[in-house]
């Protein structure tokens, strides 16, 4: 199969790779770029564990062709911490015990990040709506919802 060149920014770093035409973004991120933070769960867009941010929008990387991301700005959970300091969402997920097996966590965090970037002061209903495309087997969702609300509060405190 013909290889196609793909070039994009991944967590602020320029990346370029020749990929099989039709490769999903998930496969390219994990197998070519070594970023295993997006997880392959259902691989058909129902579980949300592969969620990444492409040009500010939440995208299911298992259904996104890498070729369509040429020139894009891509963010994953692996790029959230800076200089060893955790992102407020990562900190809040730890503090609120919002992960057990952890498989859904990167997708949850990216979904929450897109929410908080657009709406720094969300209601509980806003959070539930934002996370509605992500499933979790372990936590019962409540600790995750609490973590997102906690992160929003800590963001607004830092801004004040």
């Amino acid at each position: 199969m013909a290889k196609v060149p793909v070039q994009f920014s991944l967590n602020g770093e320029e990346k370029a790779e020749f990929v099989d035409s039709g490769s999903t973004l998930l496969k390219v991120l994990r197998d070519k770029m070594g970023d295993t933070s997006p997880k392959g769960g259902c691989l058909q867009g129902t579980c949300g564990s592969c969620s990444v941010v492409v040009d500010g929008e939440l995208r299911l990387s298992c259904l996104t062709l890498a070729e369509t991301c040429d020139g894009a700005d891509i963010q994953t959970t692996a790029g959230l911490a800076s200089d060893g300091v955790l992102h407020p969402l990562q900190r809040a997920f730890m503090d609120e015990f919002a992960a057990q097996c952890g498989f859904c966590t990167p997708g949850m965090i990216m979904a929450a990040k897109v929410l908080l970037d657009a709406n720094p002061d969300p209601t509980r209903e806003d959070v539930i709506e934002a996370l509605s495309g992500n499933v979790c087997r372990c936590t019962g969702y409540e600790p995750i919802i609490r973590a997102v609300l906690t992160a929003a509060r800590s963001n607004s405190q830092n801004a004040a």
Partner: peptide
Amino acid sequence: NEYLMPGPG
């Protein structure tokens, strides 16, 4: 994939 798995809502 076809197993009903409730979400946060």
